[in-house]
Amino acid sequence: MNFPSKLIEDAVSEISRLPGIGKKTALRLTLHILKQPESFSQSLTAAISKLRTEIGYCKKCHNIADQEICSICLGTRRDRSTICVVEDIPDVLAIENTSQYNGLYHVLGGVISPIQGIGPEELKIDSLLNRIDEQLGSDPVQEVILALSATMEGDTTSFFITRKLKEKGIKVSTIARGIPIGGELEYTDEVTLGRSILTRVNYNLE
């Protein structure tokens, strides 16, 4: 790809390093920025710089936070007896967007993967266990929902956490796995279809 300016080439090179953005999209974004008022690029630069230098993580759940404790953990209307364990921050956003869950979260920061050299000690599992112990007095955790990916690594992580939590006598559940709405059985993989059969629910006419 030929560029009329080294400055444009450098901008395209940097923008294309973002996930899901190729050279053509990066060039289109670069040219769009050039067409905007100078204040636009200054505001964009300032926002990104501030994001990188000032962003923090919740000391309790490890979600993104603007202060020591995130807004979810501080929420007075949250069900503090339930903690949903997720792999990473985008999972929190996805579940929140459903408006179907009102408990707390715990971000592990990944899943156990021996191939990649990620063991339990690299994740926020001990933090989860300590957090549950701290809540034993006034507001104990009664259920932990494991909302991890349906992969071998996700299942390994779920198994490890379940063993740890069983020692504490806490109910452990996992999110349902099955056929998506609008999906056709013909194109569903055997593992998903099998789990859908095993975790079937009663059909309600009401």
Rank of each mutant, 00 (worst) to 15 (best):
S13K: 12
P19C: 08
L27P: 04
F3H: 09
S13M: 07
I21E: 09
E14P: 01
L31S: 06
G20A: 03
K35F: 00
I15Q: 12
E14Y: 01
S16A: 15
K35S: 13
R17N: 14
H32T: 05
R17T: 01
K23N: 13
L18D: 14
K24A: 12
V12S: 02
F40H: 11
Q42W: 00
E9P: 02
T30D: 10
T25V: 07
E9R: 04
V12H: 01
T25K: 04
P19E: 12
S41M: 09
A11D: 01
E9A: 14
I8A: 07
L7F: 01
S13N: 07
L27Y: 02
S41D: 04
L27T: 11
D10S: 12
H32V: 10
A11K: 05
I33E: 00
I33K: 01
A11P: 02
D10I: 01
K23A: 10
T30S: 09
D10K: 12
E38K: 04
K35L: 05
I15S: 03
L18P: 05
L27S: 08
L7C: 02
K6Q: 14
L18C: 05
P19W: 07
I8N: 07
L27N: 10
P37T: 12
S13T: 06
I33L: 14
E14R: 06
Q42F: 00
K24F: 02
T25N: 09
F3Q: 12
L27E: 13
V12L: 04
P19V: 10
K23H: 07
A11G: 00
T25R: 01
E9K: 13
L18S: 02
E9N: 06
I15T: 07
H32Y: 15
Q36M: 11
P19L: 03
F40C: 06
L27R: 13
I33A: 11
S41H: 06
L31E: 11
P4G: 13
D10H: 02
I15M: 01
T30E: 05
L7A: 10
G22W: 07
L7R: 08
S16E: 14
T25F: 00
S41C: 14
I8H: 02
F40D: 14
H32L: 14
L44D: 05
L27H: 01
L34D: 03
A11E: 01
Q36L: 09
E9S: 10
L27Q: 11
Q42A: 12
I8K: 14
G22Q: 14
E9H: 12
D10Y: 00
L7D: 03
I33W: 05
S16W: 01
I8D: 09
K23P: 04
A26R: 00
